Computed example of a mutant assay.
Amino acid sequence: MKIDAHQHFWHYSPTTHGWITEDMKAIRKSFLPDDLVPVLNANGVDGCVAVQADQTEAESQFLLDLAAKNPFIKAVVGWTDLKSDSLEARLEAYQSHELLKGFRHIAQGQPAGFLIDPAFSNGIAELNNFGFSYDMLVFNNQLPEVVELVKKLPRMRLVLDHIGKPNIQAGEFAEWKREIERLSAFEHLYVKLSGLVTEANWQQWQLSDFEPYIESILDAFGPDRIMFGSDWPVCLVAADYGQVLTIVNQYIEKLSTAEQAAIMGENAKRFYRIRL
Rank of each mutant, 00 (worst) to 15 (best):
R104L: 13
N129D: 09
D35C: 11
E145P: 13
V39F: 04
L153W: 06
L149P: 00
Q61R: 05
N141Q: 10
G123A: 10
V147G: 00
P71K: 14
A58W: 00
S133M: 08
G113F: 09
L87G: 14
S121R: 13
A89N: 14
E59A: 11
T80D: 07
A89P: 05
I124C: 02
K152F: 00
Q142E: 04
A58E: 15
L82M: 08
S133R: 02
L40Q: 03
Q61I: 02
P144N: 03
H97Q: 15
P144A: 08
Q61Y: 03
P71I: 01
F132W: 11
Q110T: 15
L153Y: 11
L63A: 02
N43I: 04
S86I: 08
G113Y: 09
Y134E: 06
V146I: 07
S121Q: 05
D35Y: 09
Q52V: 04
G47S: 12
V45G: 01
A125N: 06
D85R: 05
G109Q: 15
S60H: 03
L63R: 02
A67Q: 07
K74Y: 03
Q108P: 04
T80P: 01
E126L: 13
F139N: 15
G113A: 13
Q52H: 07
M136V: 15
V49C: 04
K151L: 02
L115R: 06
K101M: 01
P38N: 10
A107M: 12
D54G: 00
E126W: 01
M136P: 02
Q110L: 10
A119P: 07
Q52I: 10
D65W: 00
P118H: 02
Q108I: 05
K151W: 02
T80W: 02
I73R: 00
E148G: 00
L63I: 03
E92P: 08
V37F: 06
L153C: 11
V146A: 05
F103T: 05
G102N: 11
D46A: 12
L127F: 15
G44S: 01
R90A: 11
G131H: 09
A53S: 14
L40T: 04
F72S: 09
Y94E: 12
F103Q: 03
V39T: 11
P144F: 06
A93E: 14
D117L: 09
L87Q: 14
D85Y: 02
A53H: 00
K74Q: 09
T80S: 06
V150H: 03
A89Q: 15
S121E: 02
E148L: 04
G47N: 05
S86C: 05
V51T: 07
E57S: 10
